[in-house]
Design a protein around this nucleic acid. Structure first.
Lengths: 210, 210
DNA sequence: AGTATTCTGTAACTATTGTTACTGCACAGG
DNA sequence: CCTGTGCAGTAACAATAGTTACAGAATACT
């Protein structure tokens, strides 16, 4: 665990902090599709992502979903952090987008380290900053773009996160993430295929010029 | 200034911090409609809001706007804070919704106080937390609600912030905030009037049952 | 008062997105 | 090989939102 941690966080965290994390943290390997957290769940720990990607989803009262953003190596979940103060119920759902490795740190340590380690404080802040900006980007997309643009941005981002130009999902999966219907996605994907920007196959999409 | 500060923040900040704020902060009174900050502006100070309300807007590449949320007494701007690290350009526009009083604190102090005062640290965190949740709420509204629901939520919130059941705006103003067209707003407002939930007048709307 | 400007109401139309329904195809598992 | 299930394609239609255009009312301006 210590070498994983150093590889991912060694540059930003001082050795003392690394050691503390090793002592109280628990290393976890999770496989694609694992639900790490659901809406309403009580939050126990704070995840430090070592490798892989986690997708963060929002759900409305009717059970409709919307993809907010992905967490990647070096990220942590700001939503988790906000829960250390006041309500400790998750506002979001977290699902492993790929196989992933992470370290869970008890939330009690969070504030302790805030006083103790400058690097931790910076980390926490940068994390908030990053998530806030990603939320803004998502909001921009939902508020200012049509579905075709949103779909293209989605495919591009998904391809980047998975480090692959093949998106192995059904149209229905994509529709859930973008909060629309399968038919709409099929329609738009077909258009993109006719434009030569991708190839459609059963259960996967090959990106060509996205 | 000190009594204003104590009235608004005395409970959460210790006396030493209050004193420091008084020393380095500058007190400002601004009138409704004043633009406090625009997209791309370099950020100099961090505002501590004493009274009144500030509306925070997002703009896309075509110049289209969207209301994100309001800042009120006891709030500060998280966006400002994120700028202390890395890029110091504003991502948002801030306009006084009402006459307002605030204290501007140099951003250099922000990190200094983070180490020094636990109460400041908590304040900064709670502020992030609050803004993140408000962004989430805005996103929910844009992603999951139709324009009629969004309009009702908007009127309700605006009435709350202004502490008045008369919304003194034109339909065009509202359309800008919700990022839609004037005709759409007029149409929906008319429907609400026919339902007896408000009264329409030139330049203002009286809320009855919203 | 007369004119210009701003605001609101409304109609008619277009564009986008969502819904329903049905099709055939691919694939897994007996 | 047959069958059940899930996936994708497509048409037809409905609902929502955006656009254009114009008219009348209120207000501001001179």
């Amino acid at each position: 665990m210590i070498q994983e941690l150093k590889a991912g966080y060694g540059k930003q965290f001082e050795d003392d902090l690394i050691n503390e994390i090793v002592q109280v943290g628990t290393f976890k390997e999770i496989s694609e599709g694992t639900k790490l957290m659901d809406i309403g769940d009580t939050i126990r720990g704070m995840p430090l992502l070592i490798s892989g990607a986690i997708k963060i989803l929002r759900e409305d009262k009717d059970g409709d979903e919307l993809l907010l953003y992905y967490l990647e190596k070096g990220d942590t979940c700001s939503m988790t952090m906000t829960c250390c103060m006041g309500n400790s119920q998750s506002e979001i759902r977290a699902i492993a987008e790929t196989d992933a490795k992470l370290i869970m740190v008890p939330i009690q340590k969070m504030e302790e380290w805030m006083t103790k380690y400058r690097s931790w404080r910076n980390f926490v802040f940068e994390s908030y900053h990053g998530r806030l900006n990603e939320l803004l980007a998502t909001l921009d997309s939902v508020a200012f773009s049509n579905m075709d643009e949103r779909l293209i941005a989605y495919l591009k981002e998904k391809s980047r996160v998975n480090n692959h130009d093949i998106i192995k999902n059904t149209h229905q999966d994509i529709a859930y993430d973008l909060h629309t219907s399968r038919v709409v996605i099929s329609r738009l994907l077909k258009k993109l295929e006719q434009m030569g920007r991708l190839e459609l196959h059963r259960n996967h999409i090959k990106l060509l010029d996205i």
